[in-house]
């Protein structure tokens, strides 16, 4: 897929090894796309966010050569954190709830009858609506935890919190979301 592209730029890690930017795109694009999509719930916006992430990486690499910046300790968490912050910035310009109709309909099985499919889509929309009503920190922890590739330590590093705080926020988020869905009669 990316054989035709060759970038001589590289990122230096603390281990001393240099990683080619093209291989970074290959390795981390799907994960970064899911991170951005969990915040934005829009595929084009998520792809633009991933692209902006690698442009940031490029700019950082240039600065690192000029100013002798310290090497990156955890490349994976660093990339996710960039994507996460860029997605939050982009989220201020768009309204994710506007994308929920389309996304909720895509979650429903096509084999269902039309009335049941409509009902299912409305229930998924209710989950997204209640997700947006959660406190910001709880919502962020819940979204990051949904990506099963991320461990609690990584979520804590991305959000700048302790592991115990992440666990507490995750528990409160699940509880609050469940209560609100039960009150709304969605389940």
């Amino acid at each position: 897929m990316t054989e035709g592209c060759s970038l001589a730029l590289s990122i230096t890690q603390t281990t001393g090894s240099e990683v080619d930017l093209a291989s970074l795109v290959d390795d981390y694009s799907p994960l970064l796309f899911r991170v951005a999509h969990s915040v934005l719930r829009s595929r084009p916006e998520a792809e633009d966010t991933v692209q902006d992430t690698f442009i940031r990486v490029l700019q950082h690499q240039r600065k690192a050569h000029q100013h002798q910046l310290p090497a990156i300790r955890d490349l994976r968490v660093w990339l996710i954190r960039i994507t996460w912050n860029l997605a939050l910035d982009r989220r201020r310009r768009i309204r994710p709830e506007q994308m929920d109709d389309l996304f909720a309909e895509s979650l429903v099985s096509r084999t269902l009858p039309a009335d049941q499919a409509l009902h299912e889509a409305q229930r998924h929309k209710a989950v997204f609506r209640e997700l947006e009503r959660l406190p910001q920190k709880e919502r962020q922890v819940l979204l990051l935890s949904a990506l099963e590739e991320l461990a609690t330590t990584e979520i804590a590093a991305i959000l700048g919190k302790s592991e115990s705080a992440v666990r507490a926020l995750l528990f409160r988020a699940r509880t609050r979301l469940r209560e609100r869905l039960n009150q709304g009669g969605t389940a």
Partner: peptide, 27 residues
């Protein structure tokens, strides 16, 4: 319902050719 919705977010697949477009943009 919550698990199903979060799993849908987790299982989202990136669009085809995204890596190529990103590499071109970065180049």
């Amino acid at each position: 319902l919550i698990d199903q919705t979060l799993a849908a977010l987790r299982d989202t697949t990136p669009p085809t050719g995204m890596e190529r477009r990103i590499l071109h943009a970065v180049e």
